[in-house]
Design a protein around this nucleic acid. Structure first.
Lengths: 336, 336
DNA sequence: TTGTACGCGTTATCAC
DNA sequence: GTGATAACGCGTACAA
C-alpha cells in the first residue's frame, strides 16, 4: 500500500485525497492543531500519511511561514577540538528545540567567510552563529539586516553590535600569569592568536597586565603572534626553544599550539616542565586521555550550545545587546 | 540607498521594480543565463540587487526546482576524531560543488537515527549520507524511496542495497594479525566494535582468519565487544590488564578505544609495549601530535569526501550498486 | 468540525 | 531580448 513507482514525494494533496479530507485538515493535523480536528479524522489522516510515507516538506513550510528551522554555524577551523565541541554542543541544543544546524568552515579566510555568509543568507536561516568572526564587509552588511547573528568566543568587531557568548579572556590571561608568577616563571613567552580577534587579544592583555602589576618588565616577554594550529605551535616552539635564552615558561593561545610546542620540546630535548613550562588554553576533552600532562585554562565548550539557545530566545524580544559570559577555570597539571 | 526599515528580505519583484525589468529577466541574470540577456540589462539588474542587498532565496528556488542544495550527514559520534575528519572532508567537497551540509548526531541510537531520518526527509535533501548506519525500519523505508542515500564506513544492512564508501576492513584486520604474529604476539585480545556493524565485524573476522590460518587457536583469543569510545576502551582495558593472564597484545576497534586502554595501562602500571602491545584503528590526525607512540591502521578519512562526491555523481545516472573502496595502510609506531 | 482560496519566492514555458 | 504567468507544497483567514 506504500510508495508507487513515481519519483516525487507525496504532498498534502495526496494525503488529503487518500484520507478523504481537505488539505487544510491535513495541515492542521501536522501542525499539531489536533484540538480543532475530530479525533477520528486525525486517525484517518495519520494513517494515510504513514501508508504514503508522507513527511511534510520543510521547503513549503518555510516558504509559507517565511522562517526556517535551519541555523548556520560558521567555524574558523573544524579540525580544532574546541570548535568541534562547540559545534556538537550547539547541534544538540538546537535539535532540542527543533532546529537543524548547517556547518561550514571559514578556515580563518575573510573572503571565504563572506562567501559563506552569502550562501547562508540564501537559506534564510533562523540565525547565523559565528564562532570566531572576522571583520568583513559582508558581515557588517548582515549585521544591519534583521537576521539574528550571534557571536561566539570572539566578540563582534568594534563597528558591530551583537549578542555574544564567551568567557572573560582578559581575566583568564591574568590568571595564567598569576600562576606563572607563583611558580617563579617570570622569564616567559606567549604564543598568542591574531591580535585582531578579541579572544586572542584579551588573553594577551590580561597576561601582560598581571605581569606588569607584579613588577615584571613586559618588554622582556617574547610575544609571538601565531595561527591557532598545532603546526604553527610547533614552528614557533622550535624557534623559541632553539633561541639563545629559551623562555622558562610559555603561555599558548590555545591547546593546539601547546600540542605543537610540546612536540618541539620533545624534539629539541627540552624537558617539560623542568626546562620549559607550558600552559595551553581551552582544555580540550582529549586532554584527559592523551595530554594528561597539560596545564591549561578550561573553557566549558559544551556549555556554549545552551548559552547560544538562551541568547536566541532573548533575541526574539530584546535588543541585540545581551551577552552570556561563561566561567573558566585553571586546570593545573604537570606541564606548568 | 540600501535596506530600509522593513523586516522582509528583498525578492525578485523588488529587484525587478528597481531595475525596471521583469522578474523573468532578474531570474535569468541570477541563474547565469546571461547570454540571453542584454549586457547592459545584466548590469542594471546586478546593480539593483546589490543596492537592495538581494540574495536569491534558496527556499523559493528549491520549491520551484523540487530539489535542494542540502546534503544531510548523519554521524554516530561527532566527538570521534575519525567522524569529525570525515565530516570536514565531506563539507569541503560538497561546498566545492555548491552544496551545503547539515550535520546531525545519532549517538549510535537507532531511534534517534529514525527521528533524524524523518527530519532529514523534511528538508528534501539532495542526498543523505550515513556514516555508520544502523538497521532500522525508517532506514529501510528511506532506501526504497527515490532519494539518494550513501553509506559510508559501514555497509548497508543486508536487506538494503546502496552505494558504499569505505575500506576493506577484513583485509585490514588480517594485516593487524599478521603484524602481531611477526612480532610474536600470539597471545592476544581484541576489543572490537559491535558485531552488527559491517566495519567492526570485518575487522574482527579478518583478524581471526589470519590467526587461524597461522595455526593459532582463536578460542584462546579474548574477544570483547565494546562501544567505540575512550571510556569503553578504558573500562575493558582495565578488566583485561587486571586479569590473571593479561594478553600480550590488544587490537582495538578504533583509536578511541586504544587511547582508553592506554590510560588503563598507565594506571595499572603495565608498560607499552613491553608488557602489552596496543594497536588502534583509523590513525586519527591527532596521533602525530599527542599519540606518536600508537601503532594503528591508517584510514584516509580526508579522502572520504571526494569519494562520496564521485558516488553522488554516478548515482544520478547509475543504479544504486556502485562502491568505492579506499586503501588503508599500517602505521607502525612504538606501541606494537 | 471542515473546506476553499490565496500567497509565500522562484524558475521554466510560452508568447511577443 | 524581454515580459506575463503557471506551478512548486504548505499554512491560515475566511466561509460554511
Amino acid at each position: 500500500m506504500s510508495a508507487d513507482g513515481t519519483r516525487k514525494p507525496p504532498n498534502v494533496f495526496d494525503v488529503a485525497r487518500v484520507s478523504g479530507v481537505s488539505t487544510a485538515t491535513v495541515s492542521r493535523v501536522f501542525t499539531g492543531k489536533t484540538n480543532r480536528v475530530a479525533p477520528e479524522t486525525v486517525e484517518r489522516v495519520t494513517a494515510a500519511a504513514k501508508s504514503l510515507g508522507y513527511t511534510p516538506s520543510e521547503i513549503g513550510r518555510s516558504l509559507r511561514l517565511a522562517t526556517t528551522k535551519v541555523v548556520v554555524l560558521l567555524v574558523p577551523d573544524a579540525t580544532n577540538d574546541f570548535c568541534a565541541d562547540v559545534a556538537i554542543s550547539l547541534e544538540q541544543s538546537l535539535k532540542g528545540i527543533g532546529l537543524s544546524m548547517v556547518l561550514a568552515n571559514t578556515g580563518e579566510d575573510p573572503e571565504r567567510q563572506d562567501q559563506l555568509l552569502d550562501d547562508a543568507e540564501g537559506l534564510r536561516p533562523h540565525a547565523i552563529i559565528l564562532l570566531g568572526a572576522m571583520d568583513t564587509p559582508r558581515l557588517r552588511q548582515a549585521a544591519q539586516s534583521k537576521r539574528a547573528i550571534i557571536f561566539v568566543n570572539r566578540r563582534p568587531p568594534p563597528t558591530i553590535k551583537g549578542p555574544f557568548v564567551g568567557i572573560d579572556n582578559e581575566a583568564a590571561g591574568y590568571a595564567v600569569a598569576e600562576h606563572f608568577i607563583r611558580q617563579g616563571f617570570s622569564d616567559c613567552a606567549i604564543i598568542h592568536g591574531p591580535r585582531r580577534y578579541s579572544a586572542s587579544r584579551g588573553r594577551l592583555e590580561g597576561f601582560l597586565r598581571c605581569l606588569s602589576e607584579r613588577g615584571i618588565d613586559t618588554g622582556s616577554v617574547r610575544q609571538i603572534e601565531s595561527a591557532l594550529t598545532m603546526e604553527a605551535g610547533y614552528k614557533h616552539g622550535l624557534a623559541l626553544l632553539r633561541a639563545d635564552h629559551p623562555p622558562r615558561a610559555v603561555f599558548c593561545g590555545n591547546d593546539m599550539i601547546a600540542y605543537g610546542i610540546n612536540r618541539a620540546a620533545t624534539e629539541t630535548g627540552a624537558r617539560v616542565p623542568e626546562d620549559v613550562a607550558i600552559c595551553g588554553f581551552d582544555d580540550n576533552r582529549v586532554n584527559d586521555w592523551l595530554a594528561p600532562w597539560l596545564t591549561t585554562v578550561r573553557v566549558p565548550a559544551l556549555d556554549f550550545g545552551p548559552a547560544v539557545i538562551s541568547l536566541l530566545n532573548d533575541q526574539e524580544a530584546m535588543p541585540k545587546t545581551s551577552e552570556v559570559i561563561l566561567p573558566f577555570s585553571m586546570t593545573i597539571r604537570k606541564s606548568a
